[in-house]
Amino acid sequence: MQRVNMIMAESPGLITICLLGYLLSAECTVFLDHENANKILNRPKRYNSGKLEEFVQGNLERECMEEKCSFEEAREVFENTERTTEFWKQYVDGDQCESNPCLNGGSCKDDINSYECWCPFGFEGKNCELDVTCNIKNGRCEQFCKNSADNKVVCSCTEGYRLAENQKSCEPAVPFPCGRVSVSQTSKLTRAETVFPDVDYVNSTEAETILDNITQSTQSFNDFTRVVGGEDAKPGQFPWQVVLNGKVDAFCGGSIVNEKWIVTAAHCVETGVKITVVAGEHNIEETEHTEQKRNVIRIIPHHNYNAAINKYNHDIALLELDEPLVLNSYVTPICIADKEYTNIFLKFGSGYVSGWGRVFHKGRSALVLQYLRVPLVDRATCLRSTKFTIYNNMFCAGFHEGGRDSCQGDSGGPHVTEVEGTSFLTGIISWGEECAMKGKYGIYTKVSRYVNWIKEKTKLT
């Protein structure tokens, strides 16, 4: 034993070699072989497995989906700052455009905790909710729209109204504003409101030439003092309507412009014939205590009207009353817009006519005020429907199939267009061939041609 100890002390290297040989010859039971080890760690190889990531292109799944990435790591994937920024906006807080917040056709661009709407022409605001041009839906104005110097929408209202708090709607500024039905039992019968379409306001006024200088022999019209197929109006439903009495009662109609003036057809009036105007009328054979009678003290036909040349060209006249009318729910003026808007309103496509005229061709006159909704007829169809001249200051309205029309005794009465609950004068009943005849239409004086003249002559002093 002493000898062994001496050998170990003198030859430590020998001992180490012996131990190493023993270990190498022993069977290893701690580690699995290569094949079995792979069965336990069965993990798919990654895209760049075996390579240094710093030297390969980034992978979106590896960089940002398996674990949260930084902007720089995302930049490695896209290799483009702009594309990385677009991805980053949604990656950080989701897609803010998912709810489609942009209105009126706006395009949404996502941002971090926010979004941006790219608005089409005519709109602005956070969600493109603000109209900035009158060309689109009248700028959301209830009545009139004008573009300011910086191309912003400025709404306005006709006389007797003021802008509401929203700067879009119009509200009454006087007790009985024009064009409004205020009798409670008839307010439910107000005709369907007309909503502004998209309009090209630059070209809204037709490029028409008034044929002022045409000389033409007097034409022989049949029954051209021209509501057939209409309905009984309720008291106060058309408070701007008046009836004219002269040699015979209810020979023509008219509309209240203001307390002192009536507008009617020029062919209705004769110099030297006494005319009485009755406002607030409903049943011409009954006294309903809503009527107001006034005498006409002055007749002003349009300066281009000449019955000797043509009885229905420039067929418009103004009547001055001896005493002002007292405005109330049964006696209310009709609204008159400017030339541009009167023309736009007419193009809405349908209007209402009213009167006490004959209820059928050569038949009896109506006792109760009649009204009828009539569609506008395109000019080409209008011209083809008659052998008589249709001037540019006239328009056609009615039904091709016949059966409904204005008729004798309705002449001078109103053709009105309702705009968001307020009625505007767009025409004056003038003439036609018979009444409600198939293929024939009622012919009306186009008020847009005469609004400046009306307003100039009827100013209240």
Rank of each mutant, 00 (worst) to 15 (best):
C382Q: 02
N306S: 04
W240M: 01
T422C: 06
L376Q: 06
V331P: 01
V416T: 11
S182M: 10
L14V: 11
T276Q: 08
R180S: 04
C128G: 00
I454G: 00
K260L: 09
A233C: 04
G21H: 06
E86G: 15
Y91R: 11
F348A: 14
V30I: 13
E129I: 01
G413P: 00
A26P: 02
A279K: 01
T422R: 03
K446M: 05
C382Y: 02
E456D: 12
L376S: 04
D150V: 07
A366S: 05
C97S: 01
D378I: 03
N80F: 04
E340K: 06
F87P: 15
K126P: 13
H302T: 02
I40R: 14
I309D: 09
C141Q: 00
Y161K: 00
I17A: 05
R191C: 05
E72W: 15
C382M: 02
F360L: 13
G413M: 11
S184T: 08
N203C: 03
S114N: 09
S255K: 00
F395S: 02
F196C: 05
L130G: 05
G246Y: 06
V56M: 08
S220M: 07
S148C: 05
E72H: 15
L367V: 09
V183R: 09
K45H: 09
T133N: 12
I214W: 08
T264D: 01
F395G: 02
E73T: 15
D249E: 13
F238G: 02
A265I: 01
S354H: 05
F395D: 01
N138W: 04
I344C: 04
Q143N: 01
K459V: 14
G413F: 04
D198E: 11
K438G: 14
L14T: 04
P12C: 14
L103W: 04
D33K: 09
H400K: 13
V353A: 06
L372D: 11
C102H: 00
R226M: 12
R226T: 12
P414M: 10
T16R: 10
I390L: 14
E270I: 09
Q241M: 14
E165I: 09
S11A: 11
N100V: 04
R3K: 09
Y341S: 07
L318T: 01
E124V: 05
D198I: 09
N283W: 08
G421C: 02
Y22M: 13
N42R: 06
N59L: 04
A173W: 06
E208G: 06
N127M: 06
G125A: 02
T417G: 00
V368T: 14
T389W: 13
W240I: 01
N166V: 01
S182R: 10
I344S: 14
K347T: 09
V199Q: 10
N166S: 04
F144H: 02
S49T: 13
P12L: 15
A308W: 05
E159M: 07
G230S: 09
P177I: 01
G160P: 00
R298T: 09
V228G: 05
E286M: 12
E193K: 10
L425I: 04
L32H: 15
K109H: 08
W261Y: 08
P12T: 14
W431M: 12
L383K: 12
T85R: 13
N343M: 06
F71M: 15
P324H: 04
